[in-house]
Design a protein around this nucleic acid. Structure first.
Lengths: 206, 206
DNA sequence: TAAAGTATTCGCATAATTACCTAGGTATGA
DNA sequence: TCATACCTAGGTAATTATGCGAATACTTTA
């Protein structure tokens, strides 16, 4: 499922309303959707991790700074790319941000064009990665609907156990394992064992 | 195949011999092996991409600077991690380096302890990733020994074709596909179809 | 040039796996 | 208590995989 620039939301987070407003105008001018927040906390409150989006935020903010925001996103398993801005440039801080996964770091003040160019690179990457991201989301959604026993069977299956071996390991009949696996494949919408294994790999289970 | 700190080489690249020598002493003191170079060019000349190593280098050097070195490594498909140092700190340059894949960026002058700590993080990651890196190398080696037909069968197999389907697609009997696949599995040292698929994923074929 | 080796191709028979139909026992919650 | 979901299992038919044997063509080497 491909997406376009128009489908991407840019979350602008800055405690200064002047910056928020001008950034919003600037970015909206390129066709992107913008939602702005005056703090990382209010942003996190409404966070929906399942839409294609990225963040443009100040690294230095009251209550919760950019690095703390990053930590929260990691905790929420949200890999939304972040572009940081900072008026108090410091290599040490920028290095920390990058090591924590920031995709870019821009010094204030900056040329509008400069930000737009960086933002565009980021957006292009989101568009490119989105199909895979979606697939992962779908797989995890399917996986969450498996019963505990089905998950056990699933893991044994993709870890190279024939149903007979799995049955022995679980102490149940091989027929029962078949049933669980059949259910698993149905729920995961896998048309074959191979597909199931590939799914497991994509979900990081292998 | 696990490795230890002692198995890792740190390539120190700096045009100032004072820095090279003091860094060498400093880093060797932690048990790591150090090889130093006065330019990126002399480093690239002797580069062996198949050993566990990382680079500690100045970003600003005559002839070839750190960013160009990074480009060269990408061209050589060498993913050796780089820690940059710079005495002329500039967020813009550090951001460029990070976006190009640098793992760290340190401002000169720095506390020896500071560098060692960052270097250690880097080394720990290398140790952690090494088994997987080795496995990838092994798989690619095995894969290169497959005959053209075997590669075809391999790709069809891991892409969810039963041997019957693959046979139809290739216009040959299903028995022949079986033979090719058996050979493939032997050459790849895969004990099952599952393993073969996992290998394909690891090699980035899926 | 002849021999050796490798790659590619199959058939047949057997073993293993999977699909499908059916169905009972056990929790958990409305 | 009834409904729902989960775990369990046997038997048979169909599909698939595997082991053994062997022919043809092309490349390399002695």
């Amino acid at each position: 499922m491909k997406i376009n620039k128009e489908d991407i939301t840019v979350f602008v987070i800055d405690d200064e309303y002047v910056i928020r407003d001008s950034l919003t105008l600037l970015i909206e001018g390129t066709g992107l959707t913008v939602k702005s927040f005056d703090s990382a906390i209010s942003f996190l409150d409404q966070l929906n991790t399942s839409i294609p989006a990225c963040i443009v935020g100040d690294i230095r903010m009251p209550y919760m700074d950019g690095l703390e925001l990053q930590e929260q996103l990691v905790i929420k398993k949200c890999d939304m790319p972040i572009i940081f801005m900072s008026g108090h440039a410091d290599i040490s801080i920028s290095a920390t941000a990058f090591r924590a996964g920031a995709v870019d770091f821009i010094e204030k003040p900056f040329e509008p064009k400069f930000l737009l160019q960086r933002l565009n690179e980021c957006v292009e990457k989101i568009i490119l990665d989105w199909p895979e991201t979606q697939e992962k989301n779908r797989l995890n959604e399917c996986y969450s609907h498996l019963t505990p026993r089905e998950k056990e069977v699933f893991l044994l299956t993709v870890n190279n156990h024939s149903n007979k071996q799995a049955a022995k390991k679980l102490g149940i009949s091989n027929r029962t394992v078949d049933v669980h696996r059949a259910h698993t494949m149905e729920k995961m919408q896998a048309d074959s064992l191979n597909t199931l294994i590939i799914m497991a790999v994509k979900m990081g289970l292998l």
